[in-house]
Simulated scan of single mutants.
Amino acid sequence: MGYMDNYERDAYGIVAFWLRSNLEHGQFFDREISHHELELARVNQSMVQNLAGIWQRAEQKQGDLTILVNESQQAISEFQNFLTLGMGKALRCQVIVSAPVALMDHMIREAEESNNVFNLMKSGGHVLVSDSVLHESSFWLRQMADHLAFVQHYLDPTNYELQDKVRGMTHKFERLFLQANALNTIVRKPRTEMLPVLNAFRQMVISETKDLEKFKLELDALIKQCAAITTAPPDLLEHLAREAHHLWRNLEEGMIS
């Protein structure tokens, strides 16, 4: 398989990861905006161009890191506010977009998490491994379940086997998300040690997420061969696979990034 999660996991690489995720969200959202909503499309394009410029500098490790983080936070906050405003209008039937409201909320949550990570980087704070496992699981497992729901949304209804497989995986990640939320209160602070029950959960999530990444890439190959009928945007599955990779790597390394 040609795909690999090839971003460097240093400070510049983490900033680039989040910029790229938000940038791609803007590119995907652009496809969902009706041609009647010219102003909405114009503002989104401006956001995409701004994120792309900052992302390229992060990829090339250009400039002072502190300035880069601040610029990234500003750009992503503006994108988040734009999406939040758009979601509010969509809920009131004031704009025409094809994106489900759940997808807009999904993108907003990732924008929020981006800035949470940047704030953690700026503070230089240390996070206990058990806290990082619960945080990453609680956040990303919901995103993974969303991913599968969106894949099902884009798949043609006649893809019966794929639809059935995606439904099964969606239910699996919804259950894992519920379990992460339960452990968040069962394993109380201070979480100074990795309890066996939490470590077993971490290993289960790592294994399931690796399988999910593999499935996303297999489906990506089918889509690129025009062998699966779908309306998914180009490179959507690579975007989803990259985030799955990010989750299991963070769990293995016991970090928030």
Rank of each mutant, 00 (worst) to 15 (best):
G2R: 09
G2V: 02
G2N: 10
Y3M: 10
D5G: 02
D5S: 09
N6P: 07
R9F: 07
R9H: 05
D10K: 09
A11S: 13
Y12L: 00
Y12I: 00
G13L: 07
I14D: 03
F17S: 12
N22V: 10
F28V: 13
F28W: 14
F28Q: 06
D30G: 07
H35A: 11
E39K: 12
E39L: 11
Q45W: 04
V48H: 02
W55M: 08
Q56D: 10
E59R: 15
K61R: 15
D64C: 07
D64R: 04
T66C: 10
T66K: 15
L68K: 02
S72F: 02
I76A: 04
I76G: 04
I76D: 01
S77G: 09
E78N: 10
F79P: 00
Q80C: 14
L85R: 11
A90H: 12
C93I: 15
V95I: 14
I96N: 11
V97T: 13
S98F: 09
P100L: 09
D105Q: 15
D105K: 15
H106T: 10
R109L: 14
R109Y: 06
E110N: 08
N115Y: 01
L120E: 01
K122M: 05
G124A: 01
H126E: 01
H135S: 03
H135R: 04
H135M: 04
E136I: 01
S137K: 00
L141D: 00
Q143A: 14
Q143G: 05
A149R: 14
H153Y: 14
L155I: 14
L155A: 15
P157R: 15
P157C: 14
N159E: 15
L162W: 12
K165G: 10
V166Q: 04
G168T: 13
H171M: 08
H171E: 07
K172T: 07
K172E: 09
L176T: 07
N184R: 09
V187N: 01
R188V: 14
K189I: 04
P190F: 10
L195P: 02
L195D: 03
M204F: 05
M204H: 08
V205W: 00
S207I: 06
K210W: 01
D211I: 08
L212T: 06
I223L: 07
A228Y: 05
A228I: 12
T230P: 03
R242V: 13
W248D: 03
N250Y: 03
I256A: 07
I256V: 15
